[in-house]
């Protein structure tokens, strides 16, 4: 059991970081991004530098995303993903995960 730290729980003491933000993306029929709304104007995607997919938590709130690192016609690189469950597009900074989680502790008793 986790001991009670005595710290009051309340709104706002923990906030998530790097939440995806909705993006307006036009895609080809095959699902590749071809234009994106960036700072008020649509910019064409001139190159897709990388793409990968993550599938996780199928046992609860399924996450299925296809990520793209795209280069816009202004030269800016942006990471976006297509939420395959909800069919929506988002923008999000992506960092490769660190090494695997530490092994769980042995159970008592």
């Amino acid at each position: 059991m986790v001991t009670n730290s005595g710290t009051a729980a309340g709104d706002g003491r923990f906030r998530p970081l790097n939440e995806p933000s909705p993006a307006a993306v036009e895609a080809t029929p095959r699902g590749a991004p071809k234009a994106m709304l960036w700072r008020g104007s649509y910019q064409r995607v001139v190159a897709v530098h990388d793409t990968w997919r993550i599938d996780d938590e199928w046992w609860r709130d399924e996450i299925a995303r296809r990520y793209f690192v795209v280069e816009l016609e202004s030269g800016r690189r942006v990471t976006i993903f297509h939420d395959l469950v909800r069919d929506l597009w988002y923008q999000q900074t992506y960092e490769a995960p660190k090494a695997a989680a530490p092994m769980g502790r042995k159970r008592a008793g």
Binding site: G12, R13, F14, R15, P16, L17, N18, E19, P20, I54, D56, E57, I63, Q92, T93, Y94, E95, P97, K98, A99, A100, A101
Partner: peptide
């Protein structure tokens, strides 16, 4: 807030870090 590592190994970016008051 300060940024803390939550699940640094997670492939889901928003699970990797969090902000604690």
């Amino acid at each position: 807030f300060r940024i803390v590592e939550v699940q640094g190994w997670s492939r889901i970016p928003e699970r990797q870090l969090g902000m604690v008051a």
